[in-house]
Amino acid sequence: MADATHPAVAHEAAITADVAVIGAGPTGLFAVFECGMLRMKCVVIDTLEAIGGQCAALYPEKPIYDIPAHPAIAGAELIARLEEQAQPFAPIYLMGRRVDALAEDGEGGFVLRTSQGEQVRAKAVIIAAGAGAFGPNRPPLAGLEAFEATGAVRYMVSRREELRGKRVVIAGGGDSAVDWALSLKDVAARVTVVHRRPKFRAAPESVAQMEAAAERGEIDLAIPYQLHGLEGAEGELDHVVLATLKGEERRVPADHLLAFFGLSMELGPIAEWGLGLERSHITVNPATLETSRPGIHAIGDIATYPGKLKLILQGFSEAAMAAHAIHPRIFPGEALHFEYSTSKGVPLG
């Protein structure tokens, strides 16, 4: 990794923006809007292939109840609305990339290097990385990569319609497994839930609904089984092989395997940036959300300060505060006269 104070960074072919936002979850997307309202252009970098963070990866169709003005809104719908809100400001999205290095450029700004080799130059940085970079816990099955490549094995579902008429095996015992079993039973040709023991770690009401659906024959429960193997050719899945701890095997016809074994989360290179970590969180000034390094701010779940609440709505507030704190850095000497959006509208161009 490049040295934090003396980077060896080439200037050609760099992507430039006023603010680099690390994390494309709801807080990061709202930061794009808030920066845009102050005429600051953003580039957004995220390790996932699509925007949305945990809302998209874990509960795209599960309702969220604590978003103001929305008694209930699905995770995917919330992300779609935030993307639409940010769209007038034409953010640059760099998805499926990790920020491997962050260094000062000697001109009061920063240079970020991604895992794809891009260089991003920005005058300020907002870290909205949630709990850090995360990816699915993958089952140790032979030939898994070929089925992942075709989408036969998945760790998230964007739209349940993609699985209409399909034979689906769901592995896991948490909320994601139970919620998707209930959601897909009405559209999939067959839903089989695999779990190593009868007790699930999901909401009791949801578990009761799933068990009732199983009694009606709407869902098959394979208990106590674990994933043992995948059968198929050229990435097309035919069967999922299950096994008990005693070695008893069962072959389940399947077109898709949804593996919900949780996420592996880590701060990754962020931990090496000298930002004053406290139990894997970044300590910030609650008035500006600035970290121990001037020009680098942290918002959302990754940020910590006295009185911090891990709520999306607090992350939205932090995004606004960080954007206003960054404005003097982007426009030095320019007075910022705060105006409500109802009076100023959305500045375009």
Results as ranks from 00 to 15, higher is better:
I299E: 00
D238M: 06
V187D: 08
G25S: 09
L48K: 12
L82M: 10
I312M: 10
Y225N: 08
I67C: 08
G268M: 07
L58C: 06
A152H: 01
A213V: 10
A128W: 00
A188W: 00
H6R: 14
E231T: 13
I64M: 11
H256L: 05
G173S: 13
L102P: 00
E148I: 12
S206T: 09
I45L: 15
A80H: 10
A101V: 04
V168F: 05
R121W: 08
P269V: 01
D3M: 08
V32Y: 01
A325E: 05
I282W: 00
A122L: 07
T288W: 03
R159K: 14
K166T: 09
T114I: 05
H297T: 07
E34T: 15
V284D: 01
H228V: 02
L58K: 01
T288A: 12
A142D: 14
E334Q: 15
P286E: 12
K166C: 11
L184V: 11
I127P: 00
H195G: 03
E318Q: 15
A287S: 12
G345Y: 10
V187R: 10
K246H: 12
A10S: 13
Q209G: 03
A152I: 03
V191E: 02
K185W: 01
G53D: 04
A213E: 06
K62C: 07
A212D: 13
A259N: 11
I79P: 00
V194S: 03
